[in-house]
Design a protein around this nucleic acid. Sequence first.
DNA 1: CCCTTTAAATTATAGTCATAATCCTAATGT
DNA 2: ACATTAGGATTATGACTATAATTTAAAGGG
Lengths: 187, 187
Amino acid sequence: MRMSREDAAKNRDRVVRTASRMFREDGYDGIGIAALMKAAGLTNGAFYKQFDSKEALIAEATAFGLAENAKAWEKVLEDAGDDPLQALAEWYLSDIHMAHRGKGCTYATLASEAPRHDDDLRAAFDEGLHKSLSILSESAEVDQGAAIRHLSRLIGAITLARAVKDPALAATILDANRASPAEGGSD
Amino acid sequence: MRMSREDAAKNRDRVVRTASRMFREDGYDGIGIAALMKAAGLTNGAFYKQFDSKEALIAEATAFGLAENAKAWEKVLEDAGDDPLQALAEWYLSDIHMAHRGKGCTYATLASEAPRHDDDLRAAFDEGLHKSLSILSESAEVDQGAAIRHLSRLIGAITLARAVKDPALAATILDANRASPAEGGSD
DNA sequence: CCCTTTAAATTATAGTCATAATCCTAATGT
DNA sequence: ACATTAGGATTATGACTATAATTTAAAGGG
């Protein structure tokens, strides 16, 4: 049953959004085209009319996720008070973010899988990262090096906290990384 | 052809080591039992005589990888001069480590996949992390919070650097994180 | 208003997946 | 020395994989 151009575009967009969420939850290899399309309310047959391959969707869905993340950071940094990096850390290392991988940071969930994929996906990470860093350094008025270090630390922290079994250990990881980074200079 | 107990144990150990490397390279979902066993010089039929399931191997191979990593860090910190954290960062963020995921840090390659797996695997991360943190805080004479922040930052940094396409951007990420962490206190 | 185009559904294909049963054979216990 | 045991190979399982051809039916252009 053919859809209108409008509806077809909506369907395509819904597939990208669904993929962006499910890849973050299950990993690129953890979810298949059929299950993905079903979750988006379609069947697998419709997939190859809209995308060249799974790899192409991976690149597109990841770029979407990174852009979505960047918008969220921009908002948090705008609403932050006199210590934007601290505000970002508290928001990023929250229990909410811990629990909802599918809506959360794409770097934390998928960056470690990128080396196994094609240039289009890795280029999406390039672009996403440039954007993230410019947002961070501009809003928080720090140099690029500091922005990179802050981002690296947040990503590593939530990755570790999500990996461990003991909730107390996870809380320790989050707490240590929420602590004001300038506290002693020993970090 | 039945093997001696000794040979069977060697085979089992080789499967764990091979799995530890291949999981780091391809992800838990990226390599199957058959390919894994073949790489270890065996056939898939032999697998279920030695392991209960793939999930059980995942937990065991990850625990092995984390223990292997911890030994390497201990050595680096022992040989370090007056700034152990700096020495660790330089070793961890090296081109060699960037290029060889299969022999490198298990946190950086596999921690992001842990939330999708069972308690045995996540408990392996608990144990590995406790060990890593005690090595770090003792050898470098910093408190646990500083050790956690340092580790978080290194893991995030190499994950990001490996994800991007542009080698110059990767180098920027590594350089920023190699920079002495106490430099300005703004980090 | 008809004709072409095309999105989506259905179905097909060849491969791979984790798991397991069967069989062979040699190591081990007695 | 013989019976038992168990490690590994072969083969089988049914489910799932990415991809694609075919079919259906409605949208869009003329």
